[in-house]
Amino acid sequence: MKQYIDTGKKDTRSGFGAGLYEAGKADSRVMALTADLIGSLKMDAFAKDFPERYVECGIGEANMVGVAAGLAIAGKIPFIGSFAEFMSGRVYDQVRQEVSYGNTNVKIAASHAGLTVGEDGATHQTMEDIALMRALPGMVVICPCDYNQTKAATIAAAQYDGPVYLRFGRPGVPNFTPEDQNFEIGKAILLNEGKDVTVFATGHLVWEALQAAQALEAEGISVEVIDIATIKPLDEAAVVASARKTGAVVCAEEHNMAGGLGELVAGVLAAQAPTPMEYVNGADLFGQSGTPAQLMKAYGLDCEGVVKAVKRVLARK
């Protein structure tokens, strides 16, 4: 199979910070707003070099969403950043009205998504945000998998005209996609061609899916791995074509079942190409404190979890 090399662990939020800086350098309309989390969101470099375009909002996420909408109406390109839970669940109504319904060009930077927030525990570990955000008409939902892809996705989000929810995480994870890649919103990324089963993965689970594919290859199972970096709009053509080709599908994500990638793909395939499916996700649970690795293992959101799901689905093929 195609080999991917981890060039060293880096956090996706730093990829966001780097992309934000590049976007801000390229376009003076780009602004950065945060609610008392400049360090967590890696906005420091942007704030240092573009101080007049950096706005500290204090701990008032709801107000920050509205301020960003006002800035966007006036022609700015504001990125608002906080933990994913506070950029989705806490401000759902504000995002719905001021950003989605109001069709304002606001970019929502949702960091520390999923279980990998780690020790902070369940209050900070949103496993529901993809569901909330993809339910909003017109909202683009992007969930990149590593540092390089997050940087590229941030630049693409700045260039795209319309609301974007950009989801990324806290811990260092393998950085393996090309440096300075061009990120195309709405396009699934084929990472490995296979013939027996397809794994559609998003975010931190993409690397785990590649590791699983490698392990399964040794057992003679050929796994196609597709990175669903854009959850909405979903690249339906790519999903349907691969499912038809392999005849078995696994969806892997750091998110609960309800409204996640798995349900999304299941809906598309049920209508266009019914295929046996298995899921790697957080089921219907809250997280808890622990290290990211402990939590991902405990909830089965790792290489081993993907391997097991592949075997389950192949047994049904």
Binding site: E52, R53, A62, V65, A69, G70, L71, R96, E98
Partner: peptide
């Protein structure tokens, strides 16, 4: 200029517009 209905949100949006006018050095009010 902006949708509204769910209460409590317009003052924030107006603040954003006012901030933009300041950044753009526009002598106009919100």
């Amino acid at each position: 200029t902006q949708v509204s209905g769910s209460l409590g949100q317009g003052l924030s949006c107006a603040a954003g517009l006012a901030l933009a006018k300041k950044l753009d050095k526009e002598d106009r009010k919100v």
